[in-house]
Amino acid sequence: MQIEVMTNILDKNDKLAAENNALLSQHGIFTLNLLGSPGSGKTSLLELTITALRNDIRMAVIEGDLFTAKDADRIACHGVPVVQINTGGGCHLDASMVKTALDKLDLTALDLIIIENVGNLVCPAEFNIGEDAKATVLSITEGEDKPLKYPLVFKQAGVVVLNKIDLLPYTSFDMAAATEDIVSLNPQVVLVTASCRSGEGLEGWYDWLKRQLAAKRSATVRP
């Protein structure tokens, strides 16, 4: 006997993600899912972002890692609320883990939550966690071939940050090829080339974030 099902496999996760997003949106919070390989510079980008914007924007961070609270400790030094999620070996965050983390934050006192996902270009791209947008960090030392090898994480990003451009003279990274591949995968993407070490180019990233926050604010009717 055949039984029709027609159910999305990730339906349960997607519904929880939608609940997370509805809760965050009620509070007018813009939520970013920050993706990229281990070592691409996600946490460094976060630290600089906190330093640059903390006087204007009330922000919190959720850190996802397999093990340790090393990243949460780094963020806590900057004096913003931070929650560490340890997946215990799991390769991505899911909406249920983020829901639990949100319970530990005072949502009435925030404009922005950045969720740093597990360092991985594959699995996190499949799981919505309640974000308004995804940002993908790719570092120069990873090579220009990565966008076409891991297309989904670049396709879904609202912004791609090409980090570590201070290392360009020491590598054979082909910037034209990387740019062409990212833009053809995702013609609407905002592409920022930057260095978290020198600070070069980060204005483009801050501007993008501020535009998203302004758009969220104007779309929100606070209770």
Binding site: V5, T7, I9, K155, P187
Partner: peptide, 28 residues
Amino acid sequence: FRFLCSACGSAALELISGRELRVEYLEV
């Protein structure tokens, strides 16, 4: 993975299929 129209080059391409993850039916 080139999301530009192969006929006119436009970037206004919307996905109709290719992102499915669905249980269609069971045989029991």
